[in-house]
Amino acid sequence: MDIASKGDDAGGTANSSGDTVVSANSVEKTYDSVLPFTRSVEVLDGATLHVERGQVVGIMGENGSGKSTLMGILAGVLDHDAGEVERAGSIGWCPQEPRLYDRLTVDETFQLFGTAYGMSDDEIVEARAWLTEVLDFERFRDRQIRHLSGGNRQKVNLSVALMHEPDLLLLDEPYTGFDWETFLAFWDLTEELRTRGVGVAIISHIINERDRFDVVYELHEGHLHRQEIGDDDGLSSEPTDDDVACERTASFIDEAGAGSGQRATAGQEESE
């Protein structure tokens, strides 16, 4: 399948760098309420992030830190108040809660979204065969989404994001509910996508998996802090785009420097 040719279909815009599939610069987002006597919640305050082709990027942060909001903004389904987001090529978005049509079967879901991606019937069948085999849910193909278990629903959710082999994959806790074999299969699949040049951004709470990422961003108090994996001292206490440092991040660097190798992140393996 020709990945580059499908870029326009998903509404991607041209990017200044040939290797960058998404870049967010100084993004700000506040949730305002129209009701009186309710407070606004500032979620992102100058967040900056870049994902390159063939790069697997982790986005971490405690519950309620705004990771899913950031992902929604990167995908283009959420508005942002300030800053710039540029995307290149086609996008695959796997939201945390499966956004699927409950009364359609797995096959019909592939058909509907495949049509949306502009795929031919043969390409849809091919993608379905590939993903149902890799993620092991071939036997549920004629079952309605509402009758699937949480784990199998998540497999369909992930497959919808993957089926058109996008240039950029945005995955919000994609392995929630997966059994161990599927979890490993997911990472094999991610490696395969990396070698094909797909840029992958994953929201994750599983700290033990951080070595699988090329870059980790920690989201704290609206700021993103970047760390190149393989360099424990690489996490910057400075946010990616402004001069506001975070105490929590500084303390994390101390722990990493002490050789703990793992982060004591609140809400480990919990859903946000």
């Binding site: 279909d9 389904v77 956004r99 979204f113 919808v160 058109h164």
Partner: peptide, 10 residues
């Protein structure tokens, strides 16, 4: 909930 995903898909 799924319609905006369908919009994103094309």
């Amino acid at each position: 909930a799924a319609d905006d995903r369908l919009r994103l898909a094309g």
